[in-house]
Design a protein around this nucleic acid. Structure first.
Lengths: 141, 141
DNA sequence: TCCATTGTTTACTATATTGGTAAGCAATAG
DNA sequence: CTATTGCTTACCAATATAGTAAACAATGGA
């Protein structure tokens, strides 16, 4: 039914929870779980993936936690997406045309290729800073 | 991993096979299977769905088959998508905000809402006529 | 030093979705 | 009447998803 992955959704929530605090603030995974309602064990794996992609820095131990590794204005949805899912590929045919049963004329490639391009453009245009200021604006009205 | 549904892909192929013949031409499901490489039994179910959505007309019996019920310039990818998958909803939160665990401030709604909008715009902009002329152009070069 | 607190890693599991098959039914042209 | 077409339903295997559990590693402070 073409839904957003729960993991991806959670990953954006994590980044957003961080973006809603002053830059450099360090949050524990328990705080994020409480703010964003993400199951603990699942959350920790997602945090590890965001860390591997260098979108966040993590610190173990008491007073440890998680913080953004770059300014929220520079973190796009696409980056978060790729951190947890890898590059978007709506169809095998797109990255590997040879595998396509309809060969080089495949009209599907144009169809899904354009759709994928539109998605990537949109995901690249939105940063977690955009999203968090939207929330702020809503809250102050 | 967010892939295009095989059913949706096949549905577009069916429509495209029809669009590549003169308007009003009637193709049997076996012909479409051969042209587009879609497994027979699966194909027939997809055809039934396209028929229910009134994108095609079907005729049983010898000399029966399938034909477009409207001009290919007026058939968009979005229509085909919705015929086999129902309306796009990247997240429950989008159609039913009350179900959202993060309530009315949910920043995810903005995020995925914009992405969904971009996808729908793109899918609405592309018709099977567009796609089939692209193929034709490619073939004649 | 030891312990509580944090993140890391791996293995496992239940459920849903996906992609597909099989078989029998219904309509119809000749 | 029969061969040819589409229609419907039930079923199945493989995979992906969402999540749990448990053992582990780092580290700051008493």
């Amino acid at each position: 039914m073409m839904r957003i992955n729960r993991r991806t959704d959670y990953a954006v929530r994590v980044m957003l929870a961080l973006a809603e605090h002053p830059y450099g603030a360090r949050l524990s995974s328990n705080m994020i779980r409480d703010i964003m309602g993400v199951p603990k064990a699942f959350l920790e794996r997602i945090i590890a993936e965001l860390s591997k992609a260098q979108l966040i820095e993590t610190f173990p131990g008491p007073k440890g936690g998680i913080q953004l590794s770059k300014k929220p204005e520079t973190v796009t949805i696409r980056q978060i997406w790729e951190a947890v899912e890898g590059p978007l590929s709506l169809s095998d045919c797109l990255q590997n045309p040879d595998s396509c049963p309809l060969h080089e004329d495949c009209p599907m490639r144009g169809c899904w290729g354009k759709l994928q391009k539109a998605m990537l453009n949109e995901m690249e245009a939105v940063t977690i800073s955009n999203l968090s200021t939207q929330v702020m604006r809503k809250r102050t009205i």
